[in-house]
Computed example of a mutant assay.
Amino acid sequence: MTESRPSRSAPPSLTERRKAATQLDIARAAAELFTEKGPDGTTAEEIADRAGVALRTFYRYFRSKQDAVGPLLSSGGDHWRALLADSGTRTPLAQALEAAAVASLRLPGAAREDEGLRWTRGLLRAARNDAALRAVWYRVNQESEERLLPILTRLAGPEADPLEVRLVAAAATDAIRVALETWALADAEDGEAASPAELMVRCMRELTGGLRLLARARV
């Protein structure tokens, strides 16, 4: 019997790639300005000018200045789900979840931070004092959980209880969220601080340890 693998979707069109690139340019411009001036001190006009787009283009893609950083905050979750989707159905679900999350958070080589993690740290720190930015972060996590469900449903198999699959999706998403928040608020200069991947492993095991679907997969 051959191992089940996810079907590959069609690659994005040139228009879709250009749209995604523009959104990412705007997101980076917003993150830079938030770091320099804070969300309160930044206007949508300044973000559009920094990104080199018209203000109407900004509002074509984003509803608010805080909403503009969504693509940066969601990129890590996108990477994690893509890695998880590539897991074979023969891999125990608990192992697949943890391995994909570690791979998505592990820093390359001896680097302290990659670009995505650097932006995430700054934005999560800024979100402490900005309710609208926190709302974007929570929305990104909710959307990630929803996109995770069909992947987990396939990996868990047809006999899995849908309620248990949903609980796993919620717990795994929260594990990564808490790990990133804890890491972001730690002292960036503390050489003894745990890495995002180390925190994720701890959070994942604590939050999913009692779930029957994963307990069976660990056996």
Rank of each mutant, 00 (worst) to 15 (best):
residue 219 V to E: 13
residue 194 A to Y: 08
residue 33 L to R: 09
residue 105 L to M: 01
residue 204 M to I: 12
residue 189 E to I: 01
residue 177 R to V: 04
residue 164 E to V: 03
residue 144 S to P: 05
residue 167 L to T: 02
residue 169 A to F: 01
residue 6 P to G: 02
residue 22 T to K: 13
residue 21 A to C: 00
residue 19 K to N: 13
residue 61 Y to K: 03
residue 162 P to H: 00
residue 128 R to A: 15
residue 152 L to N: 05
residue 94 A to Y: 02
residue 106 R to K: 15
residue 83 L to M: 07
residue 50 R to D: 10
residue 42 T to W: 15
residue 208 T to R: 03
residue 21 A to V: 05
residue 197 A to C: 00
residue 151 I to C: 08
residue 92 P to K: 05
residue 94 A to H: 00
residue 81 R to P: 02
residue 65 K to E: 01
residue 199 L to C: 01
residue 18 R to D: 09
residue 178 V to F: 15
residue 21 A to I: 06
residue 68 A to F: 10
residue 98 E to A: 05
residue 74 S to F: 09
residue 145 E to W: 00
residue 90 R to Q: 14
residue 6 P to W: 01
residue 60 R to M: 09
residue 101 A to V: 01
residue 216 R to N: 07
residue 149 L to M: 06
residue 157 G to W: 12
residue 149 L to Y: 13
residue 175 A to F: 06
residue 41 G to Q: 00
residue 215 A to S: 14
residue 27 A to W: 02
residue 78 D to E: 14
residue 108 P to H: 12
residue 5 R to V: 11
residue 52 G to A: 06
residue 71 P to L: 10
residue 127 A to E: 10
residue 108 P to W: 09
residue 50 R to L: 02
residue 28 R to T: 01
residue 31 A to W: 10
residue 43 T to F: 07
residue 80 W to D: 01
residue 155 L to F: 08
residue 215 A to G: 05
residue 198 E to F: 02
residue 199 L to P: 00
residue 109 G to F: 08
residue 76 G to Y: 07
residue 59 Y to R: 08
residue 123 L to W: 04
residue 125 R to G: 07
residue 207 L to Q: 10
residue 195 S to I: 04
residue 96 A to M: 11
residue 194 A to K: 11
residue 112 R to W: 10
residue 136 V to R: 12
residue 29 A to F: 09
residue 179 A to G: 04
residue 219 V to P: 04
residue 204 M to G: 00
residue 209 G to P: 02
residue 137 W to I: 05
residue 116 G to P: 04
residue 84 L to E: 11
residue 75 S to W: 03
residue 179 A to E: 06
residue 202 R to N: 05
residue 50 R to F: 03
residue 75 S to F: 03
residue 67 D to K: 07
residue 29 A to L: 06
residue 144 S to Y: 05
residue 113 E to L: 15
residue 149 L to E: 11
residue 90 R to F: 10
